[in-house]
Simulated assay, not measured.
Amino acid sequence: MWKKIIAAVGCSVLLWGGSSAYAADDQQTAMTVYRDAYMARLHDDRAANTNIDLFGPNYHWELNADGQVLRNGSMHWHGEMSWDFTDQKTNATSHEDIPFYVEQRDNLLILYIQRENTWSKMSLPGVSPELIASWNNGTVDLFNDSMQAIKRVSLEHDTDKMQGLRIVMDVGKMLQVTNKYLDESKGKRSSEKRQAQQEAYAEMAQGLMGTELTVDWVVDKTTHQTITVSVDLTPFIRGYAQHILNEMAAGKIKLNDEERAMMESLGYFSELKFYMTYLGVKQNINLTVPEEVRKSAEDMMNMKDIQKGVSDAAKKS
């Protein structure tokens, strides 16, 4: 389950980067700013810093990373995740720092994680360079497709130097569009893996249809380049977990006590925040995965295994 959540969030962030009370002229202005910023994003080679925070009753997961996404679709990220976890039975608290790298290779996003001095890796569905090129040259109209998921756009701030947009989108429809483009970038994936991915996204899209996400997007007024992006992903994580609990109640899936407790925590008590700051063009930045990491990394556990590892460490402390 954790793997589905990571795949959905990671791939959707890659694709999406990023009020109804407004008068018609104001709404048109907001849409113009949105389109200019969206199109500028497709031709942006700048570096960025990202922070993601997940809070729950007995855990705190935080990610901090520096990265660079190039206009050809290639990307490199390097940073650290940290877990603070309190075992509810023993009341013992454990902390773990987890270095990681992320790279886009062909049509895959590859995540490398180091735990206990050992590197592991996980491959997630990504977007092929060919499809990125199609977006950039206009062969594929991603912007108009993305509008299916946009419920409203408003211009919240407008100064001499910056403009602040607020975009409200439907998570279920966002996942439907994401799934379409991941399927078009199928590359060397087997038909079984493509079908499994499509089914996972279709399941999440159905369960999250109507769930709203609010994106605050600040852009440079002259260049239209992104300055900051912030998203409260709490509705996403809660909606997904509640969908899983509903599937369990209907007898469609089975959860053990630990899994059910985690889904209940995510579904009703968790908060998930995303924040990105663009750092400008940095030609000398080096975030590539070291060759020794790439060679030594073994196929890895999913996020549930990471959580379990920290839980086990708490029990031993």
Rank of each mutant, 00 (worst) to 15 (best):
H224Y: 09
Y275T: 09
T226L: 09
D216E: 15
T234Q: 09
Y268V: 02
E247T: 10
L233W: 03
M209C: 09
G239F: 00
P290A: 07
I227M: 14
E264V: 03
M248Q: 15
N286T: 08
L245A: 01
Q225S: 10
N286F: 08
Y278H: 09
R294Y: 11
A249E: 13
S270K: 01
H224V: 04
V215R: 10
G251E: 03
V218P: 03
K273W: 11
Q283Y: 14
V281P: 06
N246I: 10
Q242D: 07
V293R: 05
V289G: 02
T234L: 01
E247D: 13
E259W: 03
K273F: 13
K254Y: 09
L272C: 09
W217M: 02
N256E: 00
T211E: 12
S230F: 07
T288D: 14
L287F: 04
N286M: 05
L233T: 03
D220R: 06
E247K: 14
V229I: 14
T228I: 10
T234C: 11
T226I: 04
L272T: 09
G239T: 00
D220F: 01
E258S: 13
L287E: 02
A261V: 03
A241M: 01
L279A: 06
E264G: 06
S270V: 00
S270Q: 03
I285Y: 04
M209D: 15
E291W: 09
D232M: 06
A250N: 12
Q283E: 15
V289E: 06
G210I: 00
D216M: 12
A261Q: 10
K221W: 01
T223V: 02
V215A: 11
E212Y: 01
P235F: 02
F236Y: 11
F269E: 15
E271Y: 11
K221M: 03
T222P: 08
A261W: 02
F269L: 13
V218I: 14
R238P: 01
S230R: 13
P235H: 04
W217T: 02
D232T: 07
T223W: 05
Q283R: 15
E264P: 02
D232W: 07
V231T: 12
M276W: 04
D257M: 10
I244K: 14
L279F: 02
I253E: 05
H224P: 00
Y240R: 09
S270E: 07
G251T: 05
T277E: 15
Q225Y: 14
T222E: 14
Y268F: 12
V229D: 08
N256C: 02
K295H: 11
T277C: 08
Y268M: 11
E212K: 05
M262E: 13
Q283F: 13
Q283S: 15
G251S: 00
P290I: 03
Q225L: 14
K282P: 07
G210N: 00
G267N: 03
N284Y: 13
W217S: 04
Y278Q: 05
E258D: 14
A249D: 11
K221A: 12
A250S: 09
R294W: 10
V219Q: 02
I244M: 13
